[in-house]
Every structure is written in structure tokens, then in C-alpha cells.
Design a protein around this nucleic acid. Sequence first.
RNA 1: GCUCGUAUAGUGUAGUGGCCCAUCAUGAAGGACUCUCAUUCCUUCGACCCGGGUUCAAAUCCCGGUACGAGCACCA
Length: 506
Amino acid sequence: MAAEQGIPALQALLEAEAPHLLEKREKKERREGLPELKNAVKGKVVLRFAPNPNGPLSFGHARGIVINGNYAKEWDGKLILRFDDTDTVVKPPLPVAYKQIPEEAEWLLGFKPHRIVIASEQMPHYYEHATQMLEEGFGYVCQCSGETFKEFRVSKTECPCRDNTPSLNIELWTKMMDGTFVPGDAVVRVKTAMDLKNPALRDWPALRIQNTAEHPHPRESIGSKYRVWPLLDFQSAVEDKIQGVTHIIRGKDLMDSTRKQVLLYEHFGWTYPETTYWGRVKVHEWGGFSTSQMRRDIEAGLFTGWDDPRLPTLSALRSRGITAKALRDFWVELGVTQKDISVPLSTLYSHNTKSIDDDAPRLSFIRQPESVTLDGEHPNQVEVEVHPNHTSRGMRTFDVSNKVIWIENEDLLKSEVRLKGFANIQIEGKKAQMGSIDRNDRRPIIHWLPEPSTSNATLLVAEDGEVKHIEGKLETHSYPEGTMVQLERIGYARVIDSTTLIFTHS
RNA sequence: GCUCGUAUAGUGUAGUGGCCCAUCAUGAAGGACUCUCAUUCCUUCGACCCGGGUUCAAAUCCCGGUACGAGCACCA
């Protein structure tokens, strides 16, 4: 048709018959930030981040906080911080974590989580739902051993306990509660089809007995009060319903957990929240990390504490000078794909540089200092900028009236150098012949310090699993603890006290 | 073994059938600016796992393969 009647005729026809085809599609633009949250309603979104408080937060936890927190903020919703502390034996909670985690979360987010929920305080709710499950017959008390049940699960055989009447189940439930049964004797299971394709889902366990006499819950108000405890899949499912959670974003290792929970929601007649997953993240330099392992290592004295700069905890990163903004930008950039990824620390560092460089005052720190005596005429004072991009921040004054300066051992080998902000020199042994005050050639520029108003200082560097103490001469300063500074020609560091710094990154 | 998931430059990431000889960041190399090996700016490098199929048209949909990861705990 185009050939016979020409393009205009075609266009006219289209305009009459199907004008939408002529509309130019908008140029696709690169999506900024996180992907759109499915089925989200402004102001109605409820998300949660639910760590086990068996230790303070680690780098990996930050993802859960940042992603869920950003969505909550974006949709004017709520972020719940929930302590899933229902295991007193295998990964028991750590009391300090209840206080530390909310503080760390707030630091990271820039706002307080809207609600804090502690699972161990919600036990009556879980019991109530467990009872309902037994009464209505979609759950049962199973007295088979773990081994026996495993065989049933693999062979798709129905466990004989499935046939218990509701009244028998309630009777057995009472025995779980009153101490007649001990751990291992009985467990409450959720009924599913035993021929489900996925073996992980078949009649999954919902509550078990824990020996809380020997392993009391570390929260004093709970202690040995309860013997029967919900497992994650049950506790989390019920709690999400109670709290009105609308969206769950979590690791893809919990995909089968979602499937189990959906089965439970169907029994209760509830609708499961919208769920998305992210894949596993490894940091090149750290490999994997487990809170339980860190806890053991700290208790064994391998590390000084949870904020030991070698550890990938949030408190350690923070005390090393990684900012909350850098962590947020980092995790948002990684997004919520289900890919398993491995990222180098340099990615985090580049975000950190962006967040601190503009503020960080410059300081001179001389490693392996060597003293050199200036030979020749020169002014008694030298002024150097606090920040090269912000002259309004003033100058640092170096007093060179006694002619003795410190330079790095390494720089001593170069004969013709320029003292930054001062003058050219020619190094001959321990003497430095003064050259031009004006910069009149391209010779290398080195950082240096005058002998007065200089302190012996230590730069702590966490590297290759150890904390190195680098001694040197530090420019006298009065920046408070926590200030991020840039050590000229070395990198960024965080002030611990007037003579101690911790290295952040270059 | 059974089940589930993922696969775009070195590393991350955008992309849901035509705008894609593919986006952005990071990285590397070079350069500009600069009295820091910093910051900022510019340039260059570099990718759709493999094989089929559907379609006028596939990074995008389907099937198979491969690789990697996860679950199958009385852990979270």
C-alpha cells in the first residue's frame, strides 16, 4: 500500500483507524533508584526488617534496612523493626543487640523505625493461632522423631499423627505446654499435601519445644517462661498478619519459607503480602560472614569487640569512617535483583569518598619521618589551605623558623622535590637546599611538616586480618573525635583522638 | 537425589518484543584543572552464558543444555 499510494495515504488511514499507533513512544529513560514496588498504595505500605538479635548488625543486614527503609520512605509507609528472637538454643539472642540494633538502624536510615516488635513478647498470639490451627484441623501435633518424619517427607507418606482428632491434638498440645513432653517428643506441624512437588514444604514444622530451663531466653522478662516456641516460618507469618505487613523484601534463601507461609495463609484464609527477593552478596575482600561465627571469635578474644575494625559489622564500618549515606547509596545501587553477586570494597569506598571529601579537612601525616634541615633563606611562616576547594575554610600555619622539617623516608630518596605550599628544595643527606618559592617546574610535590607543633601519632590500618599501627608525625589539630579528615597523599581517616587516627580508605 | 531460583562489559546495574551495533556507575588507561598519589572534568576500553524455536522483528517470549546459588533443620 505504501508503495502504491505513498506514505501520506498510509498515515491518513492510520490516523483514522488507529491513531494510537502513530503516537511516538516516549524515549525510555534509565530508571533511578529502586524498582517500583508492586501494588503499593501511598501511605498504606508496611514493610519490615526482621533480624535475629544474636548480635549487632552486620554489613549484610544493612541491605535489609536500607531497601525496606527506602521503600517505606518513598511510599509514606511504615518500617517495622522486628526482633525474631524465638531460638534460645542454637542462635540465642544477645541482650545488647536489643539496644544496639535500633540505634544502628536509625543511624543508617536517618530516621527511627516506625515500630519495634519483639517476637518473644508476642508469644500469646502465636499460641492462640497454634490452637486455632489444631482446633480447625489444619495443624497437628506430631510425635514422630525427626528421622522418622524425614522418611515420610521423602517418600511422600502421610504421617500417622495427621489422623489425630482435634481433641487429641489439643490434649497433646497441653502436654507440650505443661512439660509432659520434652524437646524432641513432639512438634506442631502444618498440614499440606504430602505429594507437593517441593519436599521442603511437606507438613512443615511450626512450633517446637525448647529446653528453656537449661537455655533460658536471655531477656529476663521471658527467661524460662515458655517451653513451646514457634519456628521462624510460623512466627513470621503470623506476625506479618498481625502487623499488617503489605510488602516483604528479603533474601531469596527464604523463597521456600514464603511458599510454606502462603500455605499457612491459605488455611487461615488470609492474603499473603507482596514479596520480592534479593540474591546473595559477597564482598570480595571479606568472603562470607556469619554473626554466630563473629560472636564466637569475639568471645574467644580474636577480636576486641563488635566494632573491631577488621569485622564487617555496621559498628566497625562506622567507626572506621564509612558514612550512612555511602552505605545507603551502595545498597540502593545494587538494587533488588536475585542475582548472587560479589562486589569489591572499592565500590563502597567510591560512594564514601563522594560523601566525605567535600567536608574533610586536610592534614599532613608523615609516615617513617626523617628530619631535614633547611639551608638557605626562607620566610618563617607558611600557610596551607584547610581544604583546596574551599578557601573560605581558612589556612593552616606552619612555623618553620627553626629550619627543621619532617618528610617521609620514601621522599628522602628523591633529590629534587617541592614542599607542598612552600618551596622547592634540593635534598642532600640531612640537608635541604632552599630553591624557588614560586613553583617554576614540574618536580614532584610532597607533603611535609615543620618540627614544632607536631605530635607523635598513630594511624590504625585494618588490613589483611590485622590492625597495623603506623607511627608517624601528625600535624597538630583540634578536630573532635569522629571528624573525617584527608591525610594528604595517603587517604581518608577518622579522628579518634588528637594523636590517633583510623584509616578509612585511600 | 528432589525442589526452587539466577545468568547483560573486570565488577555492579538499566532494559519486560522494534527507540539497543544496549544505559548508568565503578574499574583500568590516557588527558585537563590543581602547589596532594585527593576532589572535579574530558576521552578511551569493555557485555546480552550456549544451542534450538516462536516472530516481519528477540537481550527481552518458549524449550533444551551449561554454570552458579538456595531450600529439603525440632536455626533465623
